[in-house]
């Protein structure tokens, strides 16, 4: 190893570099999350030919378009539905969904719970920035209380979804959460999720710096990403700070890991048995 590169992961090897610089605003957390995901795929040695990135609409969904692999940029809220079809038709592919809090929990909420229920072998990455970033900053199911958005001019008053609890309750067999600030830990969580057989759901705490950050006076890009720590529960992150940026006090790491039958396997088995039965009857 004498004199070789210490880390051989160069993200540019995985990008459609002709499309760069990307469209995202300065400091937007989605880019950091994308790096961690590609880093994990690199460390797991997953070939880009064998990968399918399926994404919905939103700044989060747009990130997939920059990756030099098989990408499907589908309708708003439906990436999990497309991915389900894809994975059933092509079980050999590594299927990864990139979605946003609006895409996944609002318009796509139904698809999420049923994807969790089925437990098909794929990984769903939800970039949670607490807002509809792409459309200019409307309230989302994860917007914290009292936060201002274009649709909550007096501050949000709706109860907030805990996406990880939702996914766990609906049956996802691996559920985890991490902040973009902890990039190496996020990469490791992605590796766990990608290696898990079954439906894995990863919530990434990301920052919409230009729209949500500005509207709520959350500070510049650096301040926003550093404040992610203060939203994390003390038992999962050493130093809780007095004034949490995200009042929700999130727990990070792997939150759920259970053994459940993988839907693709059991479905194919089921079909095979039934078809045999039909053949015997018709003979």
């Amino acid at each position: 190893m004498q004199g070789t590169e210490h880390s051989d992961f160069d993200i540019r090897d995985y990008l459609r570099t002709d499309l760069f610089p990307h469209f995202m605003c300065p400091g937007c957390g989605h880019g950091i999350a994308l790096r961690a995901l590609l880093w994990a795929l690199h460390e797991l040695d997953i070939s880009m030919n064998n990968l399918a990135l399926v994404s919905g609409i939103g700044c989060s969904g747009r990130t997939a378009a920059y990756v030099d692999t098989n990408t499907m940029h589908v309708t708003h809220g439906r990436p999990l539905a497309f991915a389900t079809g894809l994975k059933l038709a092509r079980p050999d592919l590594e299927v990864v969904v990139i979605t946003g809090d609006g895409d996944c929990l609002a318009i796509g909420g139904n698809h999420l719970i049923h994807a969790c229920r089925r437990n098909l072998d794929m990984t769903c990455v939800m970039l949670n920035n607490e807002v509809y970033g792409m459309t200019g900053g409307q309230v989302s199911p994860t917007t914290s209380n009292d936060r201002f958005t274009t649709t909550t001019p007096l501050g949000n008053h709706e109860p907030v979804f805990d996406a990880c609890e939702l996914a766990t309750a609906a049956g996802a067999s691996l559920v985890g959460r991490e902040i973009t600030l902890q990039t190496p830990s996020l990469k490791d969580l992605f590796k766990t999720a990608l290696s898990h057989r079954g439906f894995s759901f990863v919530e990434v705490i990301s920052d919409c710096t230009e729209i949500y950050g500005r509207k709520n006076d959350l500070g510049n890009s650096t301040e926003m990403i550093l404040k992610q720590k203060s939203g994390i529960r003390p038992e999962s992150y050493g130093n809780a700070v007095e004034h949490p940026f995200r009042p929700g006090d999130w727990k990070t790491g792997i939150l759920t890991r259970v053994e459940r039958p993988e839907y693709g396997d059991s479905y194919r088995q089921h079909i095979a048995t039934k078809q045999r039965a039909v053949k015997t009857v018709t003979k």
Binding site: E5, F20, G31, I32
Partner: peptide
Amino acid sequence: WLCPDFAIRLHSSIPE
């Protein structure tokens, strides 16, 4: 790690 725009690449060599 933290550059959202992938504008930084660190090259480093460590003799084993």
